[in-house]
Write a protein that binds this DNA or RNA. Structure first.
Lengths: 227, 227
DNA sequence: CATTGTGAAGATCTTCACAGCG
DNA sequence: CGCTGTGAAGATCTTCACAATG
């Protein structure tokens, strides 16, 4: 329902396929790594290997961004890195609140990979009043009643939910009411949100279950020969 | 390359589509929730709503498992839950080792959602000798030199990597050498593993980047009208 | 007769293979 | 010549819409 791509100026527009969007951060990471080794130029073959995809897919993905390569040569590492970062929005500053400061919330608040990609954690929030004031790194825990205030103060558009499942919907409602329009949900719950709000869900136990499914298949071959 | 589905006995065989496999745990969770509320029977419409998908997709997905519904009525909650659990392998006992006991590794080791789905964490492992013996819950940290021994002792087929990115490949090699055939990788690194070993990757910062991409698009509409 | 199960149509994603170009 | 960029083919996934049926 999109696909109005590349126009006059060569810059793309609307409608980078979701599958491509999901891989751009991987390419970005790979380019950053290659750049740190001093490499100046990279072929689609090399970059694809570093990113763990095949080169046709990589070239197709990059073609949605524009024509940033040089035929016969490859891509300029730094230039491509910049273009992808701009496309994703990672060279902006994103204020993030984390709600639910259990083990996972703490792990997330300490995760170095956020800061280096433009995500700045501006507040830690919990519903348990007895934990208010507790420091994690240089951030104190606030009570969830302060959510509106904190979101407004930091112009925060992204919220991370790391609460138990049964608290997640209420937290999501509060986030939406406070003006947050993107939610990363670690809680085991399906969230209902209004149009215009994006939710992405990470479920640790689902990933393990998918592995288990395949593991089980490795172990029980031959089950198919029994009509 | 698969699609040899449903045979004589009605039981499916090989080739449940990946997209379906990835949703089965979601249905399982939804069914467990519905079951706890006392619901005995559920229509595809209701279950789809609880799982956050549309009902046509749900029915198509379930059809790959067999014909477990009753026309005009719906699905028996408990029976369907059992069938999905069996299909995924969640009613088995899966021994899991976690390598890298930083914030994330600790969060994972405490995560209740694993145990209840048949995943039993049998060992915590770290490369830092000074942390050996440290207790987390009822498990001590072992040094990575003990990996082979621990994997063998617990007949462990799944490993979780929660180390920094630069240690991940070496850890993966060790896991494979020890006999682990499924790896859940939280480290920011693309892992090379032999055929027959499955790797799934969870990258927390990638999820945030995907949100940022869409968030950016919400804010800058109209960029497309400038040839 | 409400609801499942499913062919068929449509959408999206991947891969191929090669024309185009530096 | 080497490598990108991309139409076109192929694979997979989603949705439609309705026949089958308990």
């Amino acid at each position: 329902m999109n696909q109005l791509r590349a126009q006059a100026n060569g810059r793309p527009v609307l409608g980078i396929p979701e599958a491509t969007v999901a891989r751009l951060p991987v390419y970005l990471r790979a380019l950053t790594g290659l750049g740190e080794t001093g490499m100046r130029t990279v072929s689609s073959e090399q970059l694809a290997a570093a990113a763990g995809v095949n080169s046709a897919k990589l070239r197709k993905d990059l073609s949605y961004l524009g024509s940033y390569g040089t035929r016969g040569v490859g891509y300029d590492v730094e230039y491509l890195r910049y273009q992808i970062a701009r496309e994703i929005g990672v060279n902006q500053d994103w204020a993030v609140v984390i709600i639910g400061i259990g083990n996972l919330g703490q792990a997330l608040s300490n995760y170095g990979g956020f800061r280096s990609r433009g995500f700045r954690i501006v507040a830690l929030i919990d519903g348990d009043r007895s934990r208010v004031g507790e420091m994690h790194g240089d951030l104190p825990i606030h009570h969830i009643e302060k959510l509106d205030e904190l979101v407004a103060e930091h112009a925060c558009s992204i919220g991370v939910i790391a609460t138990p499942g049964d608290a997640a919907q209420e937290v999501a409602d509060r986030l939406v009411a406070a003006g947050v329009t993107s939610i990363l949900n670690f809680a085991p719950a399906v969230l209902a949100v209004p149009d215009g709000v994006d939710v992405r869900k990470v479920d640790l136990s689902i990933e393990l279950q998918i592995l288990a499914y395949h593991e089980q298949r490795k172990r029980a071959p031959g089950e198919e020969v029994q009509a």
